[in-house]
Each structure stands twice: as structure tokens, then as C-alpha cells.
Amino acid sequence: MNWRAIRAVVRRDLTLVRQSKAVMIPLVTVPLVLLVILPLVATLAPNYVNIPGLDDLDALLGQMPEDVRAGLAGAGDQERLVVLLTVYLFAPLFLLIPTMVANVIAADSFAGEKERKTLEALLYSPMTDREIVTAKLLAPWLAAMAVTFVGFVLYAIVVNAGAWPVMERIFFPTPMWLLLVLWVAPAVAALGLGGAVLVSLRVGTVQEAYQLGGLVVLPVVALMVSQATGLLFFTTTVVFVIGLLVWLLALGLLLIAVRSFDRPRLTVQA
């Protein structure tokens, strides 16, 4: 493997992403809304407004696993609400970030290069198919991980700072969240990547790639719904199993994507 060429493609793709407003706007605004504004509102709101339905917290907690209930035993309503929102209900929302970032950048990297008619020059280079596909997968995945980790740090700061009047201690991150960030987030990024690559190899424009590639957020949405309805709650064990399943799915998708990378077919499309 020619790692120098791979690094060059990764660096170039990420530089081009930084120069594209169409790509950068969702990459900045979505994490900002989900990981800063939303938790800020969620942690500060109980201090200033009377949240309707707070009386039903007991009912909601009743649906939760035993260890979660035990952890919140003796806590006040506001404290329980903050923990419920920031630790549990927002967790699947956090997974949207790596999925979205990987998906958007991969679409720009693969379909965008076809659309801009620059792919042919890359195909005429000495890079092997495997080197090209490795570089094209690494760039979005690394970007997704960078945004995810930065977002996680911001989220931790915002949540602890915002909830300080209620919690009066640093309660975040929990072990479940560390597992989420280090084990599940890389997997969902790979899943978003695999979906985007598969789609991008078949479509001609970035817009088409965005639209079809966006379908990979569906499993994440399913996790959000299942947790909100109490069907599946994010405990450490559950998160580990989810991570394992997503990794298997993502690796399968990536394998298909890598095998679909066919120089002659791309040459004809270029």
C-alpha cells in the first residue's frame, strides 16, 4: 500500500470539504444544535420553567431497567429529569453526528468527484483500486470521528455546566457514554460511510448521494424511538451489543462497497 498517496488523497479530500460551504454548514450547525443548544436548553429549562408532565416522571422511570432506577433513587425530580434527558434520551441523538458527518463527506468525496469530473485524473494515477478506496473511506471516517470527539467534549462541558445548579457535581460522562463514544460512534460512522459509498458509486450527483445515503440514519432513528418508548433502554450492556451489531452491519456494507469499487465501471462513468 502506498500510504503517502493515501495520505495525500485524505488530506486533499478534507481540505476540499473545509472549502465547501454546502458541506461545512450541516457539519457545523447540526452538532451545534444537537450537542450544545439542545442540552443547554434541557439542563437550564427546569430551573426557570415549570415542565409539564414532570409528575409522570415516576411512570417513565418505571419503564427503565433496574440499575438505572437504582441510580436515580433518592434524587429530586429536576435531577432525575436532567439525567433522564442528557444521559439517556439524548444518547441516540448523539449517534446522528458520526452517521451524518461520514455520510455527507463520503458523498462529496465519491459522488462529488464524479460530478466535478476530477475522478478520471485519479484513475489515471498509479494508485491501486484498494489504495483509492482506502483513502476515500478514511477521509470521511476520520472527519466523523474528529467531529464526534469534539462534539462529545462540548456536550460534556455544556451538560455539566448547565446542570450544575441542579446536580452540584460533575455527573457526565457516564461509563455507558464512554462506550457509546469509543465503541458505537465509530461503528455508526462506518455504517454511514458504507451507505454513502454504495450509493455514490451508483449515482451521478452529490444531491442524489445525499438523498439516498441519508437512509442510513434510519437505524439511529429506530434506536431513538425505541428508547423514548421504553422498548430498548441504553444501558452499558445494551450499548455494547448495539455497537457489536452496528459494527457487523457496517463492515458488511463496507465490504460490499469496497468490492463495488470497480475501476473500469468508474472510468466509464467518469
Partner: peptide, 22 residues
């Protein structure tokens, strides 16, 4: 079709390909 990326400078384009050709 020249197949050069509009977002890169001329120098950066050549520097990029210089690395691909090692």
C-alpha cells in the same frame, strides 16, 4: 476535459499529484 478541481490552486493540484506519483 482537463479534470482539475476548481477548489484547489494550480500549485496545490500539482503538489497533490506529485505525491500520488511518489
Amino acid at each position: 476535459s482537463p479534470a482539475v478541481d476548481e477548489r484547489m490552486t494550480g500549485e496545490a493540484t500539482l503538489a497533490f499529484f506529485a505525491e500520488l506519483y511518489d
